[in-house]
Amino acid sequence: MHKAYLQLTLLMLLFVGIWQLLSKINFIEFLQIEKLTNESEKKLGQVILDSIRKDNHELNSDSVCIYVEKMKSELCKANNIPDSSISIYIFENDNVNAFTLPNSTIILYTGLIEYCKTPEELCGVIAHELAHVEHHDVMKKLTREVGSSMLLTLTGGAASGGIGKEIVKIISSTAFDRKQESEADKSAVKYMSNAGVDPENFANLLFRLSKDKNNLPKQFEWLSNHPNSKDRAEEILKFRQKINKKFENKFSESSWLKVKKIVGESFEK
């Protein structure tokens, strides 16, 4: 090989060598990037939550909150997810919708609770949203849709309320990509199964949603951010078939009826 090409090869090797040596240093820990990211996520979650609070009333019912909290705790406990790290907020809104915010927060609309026929169906939605939290899907989606610089502006407090509302709109009504949805469904089946809740209930909810969407299109926000419900329900049933387990009704029926009654009354107000 000619001397010049040999030197060029050595230069490239030198570059790769320095790069690989430097990559052994834990910059992420040294620069506290993870801590900064977590703090930004925390602030961003709070900004979005405040924006939702401006337009919606939080459901003022201990019974419903305790019931949903218990559901979440069962899922977390069975799947080794720190229960205290996940927060659930319920808002009075007739849209059939649930979504996750940064900072491990799940938002449920009373419209969704009203729409669920069984507590296991609601548990399916919570398990699905829990999976989005665990996979950090919401930050990935926001970074993709809004961009990191805008998110940093928002957490820095320099954003107007309009931007906050835009973010809420993105989070609550635009889709995760198909792979993220499929992964979240797969994890939801696992979470439900580990908690002793039949994942078939979640598939039933999705089948019903896909049938009903033509009658009440405006209320079915969850469908706009979770498209192809029928296909997903079929996929969930496939995951379900792989689990050789018998399930019993896990949640108290009388408490569920009470929850439905309170939610129903909130619509009458």
Binding site: F15, L21, L22, S23, N26, F27, T143, S148
Partner: peptide, 23 residues
């Protein structure tokens, strides 16, 4: 990629940036 396309912020990435900056 890191800013807009969900690439992960890794030690490998930071090391590459530093090496490129030195060169």
């Amino acid at each position: 990629g890191v800013l807009f396309w969900n690439f992960n912020l890794t030690n490998n990435f930071i090391a590459f940036i530093i090496t490129a900056a030195v060169f």
